[in-house]
Design a protein around this nucleic acid. Structure first.
Length: 473
RNA sequence: GCCGGUGUAGCUCAGUUGGCAGAGCGCCUGACUGUGGAUCAGGAGGUCGAGGGUUCAAGUCCCUCCGCUGGUACCA
């Protein structure tokens, strides 16, 4: 049997897993600071529970699971965390409302995999169910900002739009409402394709590089002109954008309430200190749009825009109705954990390391094994993450190399010399590596022993703790 | 899903009109029997993605499948 994985699946090896866990811990702590509570649901749901919203095409990208009890009732793997949340809301009538929950879990989509796009990936979701007010949307957007800041991602921008405001485009450009989904799907490509191609796709269509025919929507030039006018609505300041929107859509039905929503969110955010440089109003984001009903937003990293949206969400007031019959207003956001991690590694804002241990105790002399064990457990009991070398390499050189390869910063050595003196030899591997750059030959290396010093055995814990604070700054 | 590119050592890749399977880095061993770096000397490591076909002969040409990749469609 050849070891292999099915298409679009990946293993997450320790170095990446460690970075990812740290990321998840940070996100969780931000969400709990907002008072959100955790939820978990099974990976497997009834297929009809999953596929209700999207119709038949939606089913195409659901992984189906054979039902061992009844083949007539098929099962599937969840493709997001929002639909299971809607089911939970509808199923547990006595859950407190508002229900504000976070959930981090893998989801599956049987789409074509691409770079940074897998068939199993982990989402970290945050949702408020049962709140109609814009305050809930504001909190979600603020939490997105706080999360990105806590993750130290560098520059980012949250772009906020609104499904309701976008809907105004239809009467504004005199386009039938049935065409809305198609128009938005095309407009969503603006970033990727540029205005010229988008215009072609709105009207006559064109042939792309690979020779594929892109079907046009057949809009008139007057309609496209109106769309262009709409796309011209942009400004650095949220207030200026709001003024432009109001001007453009004055007099249209529902314009006041749609715009009012955005205005309130913008004002709340301003009061909290989330300024124009972090949160912008930008009508060019459409976010798939399928189940969104109100404000929508997404966040991009300014230094890695090619990674696309790393954080996105919006209001979806009708999703729960499917199960419940009554409306349950909801708003939320989702982080693509693996995509964000990939972007941060790319930006060198996360360093991948291969070990959890801070200290490696080398096995210098097998007769002293009990001394080594004693040191290891002394450090562990003091809270220092410690590994005693348990591999087969007898030579200390190899053991040090192992520490190097696994990114363990400190090595401890104790042979009979030290034992007699009551001391230990401590090596700061990173410092030694740094100092060795200026060394001429092996003799100097041997005599100077860079990054290495002796300390009394009795002061083991304190010495290591001091060195760790020094290293980890 | 559709159109194209690509697959050779752990990694990055070279490989001529079809004619003995290669390099750099990494890894292992030693110089250095109490020390990760550097230097030097050796060494291991490949069913050339898989299967089939053409040929005296296939990494090289042809077909099918799989993976990766660029574009496109989809993305609840």
């Amino acid at each position: 049997m050849k070891p292999r994985l099915a298409r679009g699946l990946q293993d997450i090896l320790p170095a990446q897993m460690l970075a990812r866990q740290r990321m998840i811990d940070v996100i969780r702590s931000v969400y709990e600071r907002y008072g959100f509570v955790p939820l978990d649901t099974p990976a497997i749901e009834f297929l009809d529970v999953l596929s209700g919203t999207g119709g038949e095409e939606a089913q195409a990208s659901i992984f189906q699971v054979a039902n061992p009890d009844n083949q007539e009732v098929p099962l599937g793997l969840r493709f997001d965390l929002t639909v299971p949340l809607a089911r939970v809301i509808a199923q547990y009538a006595d859950l407190p409302r508002p229900f504000r929950r976070y959930q981090v879990a893998p989801v599956w989509r049987a789409d074509k995999p691409g770079p940074g796009r897998f068939r199993q990936f982990t989402q970290f979701d945050l949702d408020s169910v049962g709140v109609k007010s814009e305050v809930a949307d504001t909190e979600i957007i603020a939490a997105a900002c706080d999360t990105l800041e806590a993750l130290d991602v560098g520059g980012f921008r949250v772009r906020v739009s609104s499904r309701k405001v976008l809907n105004l485009l239809m009467p504004f450009a005199d386009i039938p409402t049935e065409a809305a989904a198609d128009v938005f799907r095309v407009l969503d490509k603006l970033d990727k394709l540029g205005l010229d191609k988008v215009k072609l796709e709105l009207t006559t269509g064109y042939k792309d590089k690979s020779g594929d025919t892109i079907r046009g929507l057949g809009l008139s030039s007057a309609q496209v002109q109106k769309i262009e006018q709409f796309l011209d609505i942009k400004a650095d300041k949220r207030e200026d954008v709001l003024v432009q929107i109001k001007e453009a859509f004055a007099g249209l039905d529902d314009a006041d309430s749609a715009i009012g929503e955005l205005e309130k969110i913008s004002k709340h955010l301003a009061a909290l200190g989330y300024d124009d440089d972090r949160v912008a109003l930008d009508l060019s984001i459409a976010r798939g749009l399928a189940y969104y009903t109100g404000p929508v937003f997404e966040a991009v990293l300014l230094d890695a825009p090619e990674y696309g949206s790393v954080f996105g969400g919006g209001r979806y007031d009708n999703l729960v109705m499917r199960f419940l019959g009554e409306a349950a207003p909801a708003t939320g956001a989702s982080i693509g954990v693996d995509r964000l991690l990939a972007a941060l590694v790319h930006l060198k804002r996360i360093k991948l390391v291969n070990s959890t241990a801070q200290v490696l105790i080398t096995r210098f002399d097998n007769d002293l094994i009990d001394d080594y064990l004693a040191m290891a457990f002394e450090l562990r009991r003091a809270g220092v993450r410690t590994e005693m070398y348990v591999g087969t390499a007898k030579r200390v050189g190899k053991q040090l190399k192992y520490a190097d390869q696994t990114d363990i910063p400190i090595a401890i050595m104790m042979g009979s010399d030290e034992k007699e003196k009551g001391t230990i030899t401590i090596k700061d591997l990173a410092q030694g590596r740094e100092m060795s750059k200026d060394m001429s030959g092996h003799e100097q290396w041997k005599t100077e022993r860079p990054g290495q010093f002796e300390a009394p055995r009795s002061e083991l814990v304190q010495t290591i703790k001091n060195l760790l604070t020094q290293i980890e700054g």
